[in-house]
């Protein structure tokens, strides 16, 4: 009964890019880190970014969104098991606002489910930056993010596809977000998709 009542409380947010609280989400594609940075601006509290020790691509302080660096903690565990353990522990901690992780291997259903339980226990949102096709089916939503070439010089376009959504509909959005603050513009292109329909 408890579980059913909990499910009823969760409602699809009006804002398309708002991630459901206390759940773990996934993002893939070349623009997944940009999507993660966009989400850090929409979560208060400490942001924990967990990436493997051998990952060379790391956040650069002077290019991060405003006010992120003082609440950002980087954790660089050596092994994949340690990485998943760190994600689980961070999700269970109450003061953490958002947990971003870059797992290197396929997330098993067990791992995905454990992360969801941890997120519910700590009321924390998680975002896994996965490689294409390495997600777990326990995820709440899965986004495919790609940067998009802009026609005019002063816009930075992103094409974000919501491929999988457990509690809502899928969708595709093109937006103009410059990376410094939470402000963004939707670009409506009727009749066009960034990827061709199957």
């Amino acid at each position: 009964m408890t579980i059913l009542r909990d499910l009823a409380h969760r409602q699809a947010p009006a804002d398309p890019f708002a991630l459901t609280k206390a759940r773990v989400h996934e993002a893939e594609g070349l623009g997944r880190r940009a999507f993660a940075l966009f989400q850090t601006l929409r979560h208060t509290g400490t942001v924990i970014w967990i990436l493997p020790a051998h990952e060379p691509q790391r956040p650069m302080l002077r290019g991060l969104p405003d006010g992120l660096s003082e609440r950002l903690l980087l954790i660089t565990p050596k092994s994949e098991t340690d990485l998943l353990w760190c994600v689980e522990e961070s999700l269970r901690a109450a003061p953490v606002g958002l947990v971003i992780a870059e797992p290197q291997q396929v997330l098993s259903l067990t791992a995905g489910r454990r992360l969801q339980l941890a997120a519910e226990a700590g009321q924390t949102t998680g975002l896994m930056l996965i490689r294409a096709g390495q997600g777990s089916s326990a995820t709440e939503t899965r986004w495919h993010c790609t940067p998009k070439a802009a026609t005019n010089a002063d816009s930075t376009l992103h094409c974000w596809n919501l491929n999988k959504n457990k509690k809502g509909t899928a969708g595709s959005w093109v937006l103009n977000w410059h990376g410094a603050s939470a402000a963004f513009d939707m670009v409506s292109e009727t009749g066009e998709r960034c990827e061709s329909a199957d």
């Binding site: 509290g45 302080l61 660096s69 954790i75 660089t76 050596k78 353990w85 961070s90």
Partner: peptide, 28 residues
């Protein structure tokens, strides 16, 4: 204060498993 305590506890837990030199802050 409660948040600071909880955060310190989390850093201790993470640091004791993966090493305190792997729980990092970014500074200019």
């Amino acid at each position: 204060v409660r948040n600071q305590d909880a955060m310190a506890d989390l850093i201790s837990r993470l640091g004791n498993r993966v090493g305190f030199d792997r729980v990092l802050r970014i500074a200019a």
